[in-house]
């Protein structure tokens, strides 16, 4: 009797064991299912596939209990497929959402591109305008300054009259009264780098021609030195000596001779360099 009871108990235990031995494929499918449930990308609420997968896993477990190996394989296959579908669908949804987001960004970026282009165009126009304006302003200012320097328009440019007596007899040093206009000229030349000057020295009729050539040359050089000392580049100043030729006044009187001892300065038109006139 006791033997029979033991045998029955053992049989029952074995049966229980057989019923609860989990199928490895079902276990794997369960883990995959759980992982899908935990995936934040997959919305559980609208994943009918996951709901179906859960049912398939339950059916696979039931088939396992009934030792229906084919049934286990079948339902695990279905569950696997549904989990894959759920993942893919969630991925598709995310990709579509991202694409829609990018499409919304597009118009603003297009506008940005156009704005950037417009900005550059505007900046360029402003710069061109500014250049034109400053060029005009500079030319107008130069004209005004030339007026202040009391120049006269000649065929070679603007002739500058220093005023008063420039040099003492047989001397090449500038008299102080002549330097007032010269310092104004230096300022003009510094402000207008595109302008050059021609300085021509003259002598009165007193003395020999070679001596007058030397002294007239010395007077032109004096003016050049003065301008250079006041900041004007030497290569912007052309010098020439004319001796006693081309007197302004009659050499008969002292006053006349005083005015004939002179330096004549011509402000050359824009674009004409000192080298251009020195070559003549």
């Amino acid at each position: 009797m006791a033997r029979v009871v033991t045998m029955v108990l053992a049989g029952a235990l074995l049966a229980a064991c057989a019923n609860t031995v989990p199928h490895p494929e079902v276990q794997r499918a369960k883990r995959d299912y759980q992982a899908a449930l935990d995936d934040p990308l997959i919305d559980r609420k609208d994943s009918l596939q996951l709901l179906e997968a859960e049912k398939d896993i339950q059916r696979a477990e039931a088939a396992n209990r009934e030792k229906d190996e084919l049934g286990v394989t079948h339902y695990v296959y279905l569950a696997d497929m549904r989990i894959r579908i759920a993942r893919l669908t969630a991925e598709t949804k995310a990709a579509n959402a991202r694409a829609a987001e990018l499409a919304r960004e597009r118009p603003s970026l297009r506008l940005e591109a156009r704005t950037a282009e417009a900005d550059v165009a505007t900046a360029r126009a402003l710069a061109a305008e500014e250049t034109a304006r400053t060029a005009t302003q500079r030319a107008q200012r130069a004209e005004r300054e030339l007026e202040e320097l009391e120049t006269r328009q000649t065929e070679r440019g603007h002739a500058l009259t220093l005023g008063g007596v420039h040099f003492d007899f047989n001397k090449t040093a500038l008299k102080p009264e002549a330097t007032r206009k010269l310092s104004m000229l230096a300022g003009f030349l510094i402000a207008n780098p595109d302008r050059a000057v021609l300085v021509e020295g003259y002598a009165d009729v007193v003395g020999s021609d070679p001596a007058n050539a030397i002294v007239s040359r010395g007077r032109a050089d004096s003016v050049k030195r003065y301008l250079v000392a006041n900041g004007v580049a030497a290569d912007r100043i052309a010098v020439a000596a004319h001796g006693a030729s081309d007197p302004l006044q009659s050499n008969e009187s002292t006053e006349g001779r005083d005015l004939n001892r002179r330096a004549q300065i011509t402000i050359l038109p824009p674009g004409v360099s000192a080298a251009d006139v020195a070559a003549e």
């Binding site: 079948h74 497929m81 894959r84 579908i85 893919l88 598709t92 990709a95 579509n96 597009r106």
Partner: peptide, 30 residues
């Protein structure tokens, strides 16, 4: 039932490919 899930998976794969290609295009344009 296997046919049904296989067809559904094929459908999901196709839609996924299309979405990814659209996203790639959108990224390229941007």
């Amino acid at each position: 039932s296997q046919v049904a899930v296989e067809a559904e998976l094929a459908d999901a794969i196709t839609r996924n490919k299309i979405a990814k290609s659209h996203l790639k295009d959108a990224e390229k344009v941007l």
